[in-house]
């Protein structure tokens, strides 16, 4: 339903592909530019995929409402940025500060929504000892509810651009023939920072240790004095914050709408599985690989952009056939 929207949200990919349609030489010519675009997309996927994989790690559940956390982050940061920018023309240090405000507000809203989501859609069921599929369905219900509530409260029109406070397509520098625009730089840089931060969090902090312990063996972790409920709740908060940031970045690049979460959510889920679900580094690698595969393969002269989604799932199936538990496998928690 929404992948059409998604395709139209990526005008520059389509533009990059259009001339490549006839000449295979062009594919090599476009390669550096496409790698940059793939990196941009891949980092967004990775940020969202981390949320899926973290929750899967502690609960062994697919959090189907995660895409709505992403959407909520985008809307929340939109409201904040809109309130800051208003009708003014920002200059100087105000611009990077506004971007920072967007990132922070996206993370805050994402974390808050994920936290409430866990309380409402998961905790009650966990207490009741509900069957596993019930969690999936409650998440689907929550997802339907959230995306339509956002549609009712804000708008059902898709692709609402953020207020312009800096030139998104401003050309920063080129690597060979690849142009890096400002938004691509921001996305990649933020994603890298967030991922390094998360990696440290999971591997070095007490919370990270708790998360790893619950993922490894929840009953034993409880015996070791880890409050499972609290750990799960915080895992949702961390994953939600990442998705909220991704929502802000995605919204800045491609626009905001109440069903914007669906397709990126599905792709990010695929990325998480690709890397080995439950595995933090796997989600990062999976996201990056999926982003690259999508852009590079659909840029091939005999494929074309309309096969974008088919490519990503075909890559997923092929990799799962070779490595049934994803690229890095399920359990890297211990390796850290």
């Amino acid at each position: 339903m929404s992948h059409q929207v998604w395709l139209h949200q990526l005008p520059h990919i389509v533009a990059a592909n259009a001339p490549a349609a006839n000449h295979s030489v062009d594919w090599f010519h476009q390669l550096p530019q496409n790698i940059v675009i793939g990196l941009e997309q891949g980092s967004l996927y990775a940020l969202v995929a981390l949320g899926y994989t973290l929750v899967y790690g502690v609960l062994q559940l697919i959090n189907f409402a995660h895409s709505e956390v992403f959407m909520a982050g985008a809307f929340g940061s939109y409201l904040v940025v809109d309130a800051i920018v208003g009708n003014r023309h920002l200059t100087g240090a105000a611009v990077p500060l506004t971007v920072l405000a967007g990132i922070v507000s996206g993370a805050a809203v994402g974390a808050a929504v994920a936290w409430i989501l866990e309380k409402v859609a998961y905790k009650a069921l966990r207490r009741n000892g509900a069957p596993k599929l019930a969690f999936l369905i409650s998440a689907i219900g929550a997802s339907l509810f959230l995306s339509n509530l956002a549609g009712k409260l804000f708008t059902r029109v898709q692709n609402n651009a953020f207020p312009t406070y800096f030139n998104v397509n401003h050309h920063v520098f080129s690597i060979g023939s690849a142009d890096v625009s400002l938004i691509v730089l921001i996305i990649i840089a933020t994603a890298v920072i967030m991922m390094v931060f998360l990696d440290r969090l999971v591997n070095k902090t007490k919370l990270g240790m708790g998360i790893r312990a619950v993922a490894e063996d929840a009953p034993t972790a409880a015996l070791m004095g880890i409050d499972i409920d609290r750990t799960i709740s915080r895992t949702f908060i961390v994953g939600g914050a990442l998705a909220g940031v991704a929502g802000f970045l995605f919204g800045t690049a491609f626009g905001v709408g109440n069903i914007m979460g669906f397709t990126p959510g599905v792709k990010a889920f695929a990325a998480a599985v690709l890397g080995g679900i439950g595995n933090v580094r796997g989600a990062m690698i999976g996201g990056l690989i999926l982003g690259q595969a999508e852009v590079l393969i659909s840029a091939l002269p005999f494929v074309g952009a309309e096969w974008n989604d088919v490519v990503s799932f075909a890559v997923l199936v092929l990799i799962l056939l070779v490595r049934p538990t994803g690229i890095l496998g399920e359990r890297l928690w211990r390796a850290a």
Binding site: V120, A121, I140, L144, N148
Partner: peptide, 14 residues
């Protein structure tokens, strides 16, 4: 309508 359906499904599962 979808919002209400979602809320109902959620409540049912809870």
């Amino acid at each position: 309508r979808q919002m209400w359906v979602g809320a109902l499904v959620l409540a049912m599962m809870i």
